[in-house]
């Protein structure tokens, strides 16, 4: 991979995460537990898909040719997506959705913070500067919900602990560097995930403690998302998301 290819692939790591968790969150629209929170989660989805658009646009410029902000999400197949397994996990219920969002928000915040502070790529910094504001709010929102539900009723505590236990297996992958991420870091534009890992654990521990939830003791990590080995759920996300572009190739909408 030359530098340009590394940059392109690295942007996809970032963009695909936000795209797919945004897509998952948007499934909630119209089905939330209360009107105010339906609106809140949709705002988060809009932020994330908006961020993904900026990143895909940048990636498309690097790639050139027919590549666009739409061809990247709508015309790649499963093995070409670089997102974490965590973000593609089903919504299941409000507890899973909140825990997934919280784990991701901490990561998302730290990655963007490091890009903003240290990356040598101006365009990535620009996008991160906007993202960090959104992400700060997302993290506040999801942290509060983790605490509220962890320390709410017996039922909510049980549901939250189950979600934490189940989704924990997907968090190890956040910090296992793919070849692209390693190179992006070496080349000075990618985030330093080793530094982020420690901060992530500190923040997660702080919030889960306050929420009276237990951090699972296992260090087993499901991995594969970053290299395109996804869960079976992912095929269905694509089947839905890409339906129009696949059924009617090459048209304007």
């Amino acid at each position: 991979m030359d530098q340009k290819e590394v940059l392109f692939d690295y942007i996809l790591h970032l963009a695909d995460n936000s795209m797919i968790i945004g897509q998952r969150n948007s499934e909630w629209c119209g089905h939330g537990p209360v009107l105010e929170q339906d609106i809140a989660l949709t705002n988060i989805a809009l932020d994330l898909i908006g961020e993904a658009r900026s990143l895909y646009q940048y990636a498309a410029e690097i790639k050139g040719g027919n590549c666009t902000e739409d061809s990247l999400p709508f015309l790649r197949d499963i093995r070409e997506f670089r997102n974490l397994l965590l973000v593609e996990q089903p919504n299941t219920d409000w507890a899973y959705t909140i825990v997934r969002q919280f784990f991701f928000d901490v990561f998302h915040y730290l990655v963007n913070k490091d890009i903003l502070d240290n990356s040598n790529d101006l365009r990535l910094k620009e996008i991160a500067a906007k993202t960090i504001k959104e992400s700060t709010y997302h993290l506040k929102w999801s942290s509060e919900w983790v605490i509220r539900l962890g320390d709410g009723t017996d039922i909510s505590k049980l549901k939250m602990q189950t979600a934490v236990d189940d989704l924990w297996d997907f968090t190890g992958e956040l910090f296992i560097l793919s070849e692209t991420e390693q190179k992006a870091m070496d080349l000075g534009f990618g985030a330093d995930l080793k530094k982020a890992e420690q901060l992530w654990h500190e923040k997660v521990k702080e919030i889960l403690n306050e929420a009276c939830l237990t951090i699972p003791s296992t260090d087993f990590a499901q991995q594969g998302g970053k290299t395109g080995i996804h869960s079976e759920h992912f095929g269905y996300i694509l089947a839905e998301m890409q339906f129009m572009q696949r059924a009617y190739p090459g048209l304007e909408w």
Partner: peptide, 20 residues
């Protein structure tokens, strides 16, 4: 107006509902 469980949530809900 809106509904919220506590004041923190009320401010956030207000932000999400009334300042989009």
């Amino acid at each position: 107006s809106l509904h919220a469980a506590d004041q923190t949530m009320a401010i956030e809900n207000a932000r999400d509902v009334y300042t989009r």
